[in-house]
Structure formats: C-alpha cells, structure tokens
Amino acid sequence: MNADIANVISNGLVTGCIYALIGVGFVVVFRATGVVSFAQGAFMVLGALIFAGLARAGLGLAVGLPVMLVVMLVIGGVIYRLVFARIAGAEAFVASIATVGLGIVLEVIALLIWGPEVIAVPQLFNFRSRVHVVGELNFSALNLFVMGLTVVAFVVIVVGLNRTPVGLRMRAVANNPQLAAYSGVRVVRTSMIAWGIGGLTAGLAGVLYLLGSQPDPVTVYSLGLAAFPAILLGGLDSIPGSLVGGILIGLLQAAIGVFVGGEWQDVGAYCVLLAVLLLRPQGIFGSAEIGRL
C-alpha cells in the first residue's frame, strides 16, 4: 500500500467518524420528530466549548467528557421542550427553519461567552505515538480514540434503540406519533430524549474535532453543515446509513484532498449531495417515502 492511500484511509476514517456522529444525532432527531435540523453545528460548538472549559479547569477526559455529554443531553432535551414541542404540528419546513434560527442563537451565545478565538484546550494526548496497522497504514493514538468512541457511541445507540423500553417508545413515536400517544407513550418526553441524544452526539463530535485540530467556534459550526452530504448519502432516517455515509464522504474528501487539492473537498461532497438527490433521494439505506418530504 502506498503512503498516499494509507493517508487517505486514516484521515478519511477519522473525518468520517465525526460526520457519522453528527449524522447519527441528526437521524435520531429526524426519526423521532421529523425535523431536519440545521442546528447540529451549534450543538457541536457548545459541546466543544463546554469540554474545553472543563479541561482547562483541570478535568481530564475521564471526567470532562461524561460531564459534557450529560450537559448536552440536558440542553438538547430542554431546547426541544422550549422550542420544537410548540411547533410540532406545523408544516415540516417551519421546524427546520426554526433550527436555522436556533443554530444562529446558540452560536451567538457561544461567541459572546467564549469569544471567536481558537478554542484553547490543554494537550490531553500524546499525538506522536502512532500505532502501526499494516503496510504504510498507521493511526495516531488520537485517531484510534476517535474511532473507538464512535464505535462505542453507535453500539450504545443501536442497542439502546432496539433493546430498551426507551428505544422502543422512540421507534413507536417515529412510526406514528398519534398512535404512540394513544397507546400511552409520552410523546413529548420521548422526543426530548431524542433531541438530547442529538445534542449529545453532536457535542461528542465537536470535542473529537477539537482534539484533532485547533478550530475556532465558527469553523466547528460550519462542520455541522458540511455533514449534510454524508447524512443524505446514508439516508436521512437510517442509523447505519449515518455511519456508512459519514465514512464514505470522509474517505472521498480525504482522497480529493490528497489527489486533487484541499480546496475541492467541500465542493466534491456537495456534488455528491446533488447526485444523491437526483439519483437516489432516499440515500443508500433510507426508506423510500422520505423522498417526498
């Protein structure tokens, strides 16, 4: 294996994992409440800033990360209760436009509190230590950490949705909110949990991105939008789709970066988005009806 391809694989997998985490939260929210959320980027910013604050206060990963996750879970749920529960019955695009407004507000709050500078976070990892896999392919400790956490997050979410009562209720709400309500499911509470998961996974994605690069809040925020090609490729309503779509777009962008040029990366992803819309609007794993939103 040559060095270029090895690079594409390792970089692509890491970016792909971050897209996948943004995407899985998006999918959970979309399935439970039918909202196409443009606010994932803002949740990423919040997660990254909260974590950075905790890390600067001396809390390491082992404490800082779980605390951030809990805070984001609460923020996501509260936001659903305050905003989206109120517009649940309106036309689909109203809620989506509201996520645009919400994204702006959250980003501005973050900027006003923490400022627009590069987010400072103490070195928590020894980036140099690399783990050799095969041929030229090797991963840094950080890369392995990112991929490992992504796998854990997906396992937890898939098992949670399929094996727990909460997951069962969430699926009931996704299939038919009215029927779920009649059968005694508390739709609002279930939807709050879904939004909490959306905030939590986006926060996790924000932290993992923060650890690998030195981004400012605006860069983190725009990554939330950059995940749309991946989400659509996998299918707006498919959890495995968010993983596969994320990884595919991550690999594609890494390949474009190595073989074509970094400036073409975003355009490449958005061309994929257009192609998917034209050829297979439900994405790889999505269900057909979604095509007619």
């Binding site: 196409v36 036309e91 689909a92 695009f93 989506s96 939008l225 749309f228 090609p229 659509l232 975003d266 355009v267 958005y270 061309c271 988005l273 257009l274 819309l277 609007p281 095509g291 007619r292 939103l293």
Partner: peptide, 18 residues
Amino acid sequence: LRFRGLYLMLTTLALQFI
C-alpha cells in the same frame, strides 16, 4: 421538483457552496 420543501433546502444548500 419531485419533492416538497425540505429537499429543495438541501439542493439549494449545495448550490450555495458550489
């Protein structure tokens, strides 16, 4: 055309970047 509002949002998001 084949879709309601949300997909047009995504198409035009792509247009914006392109």
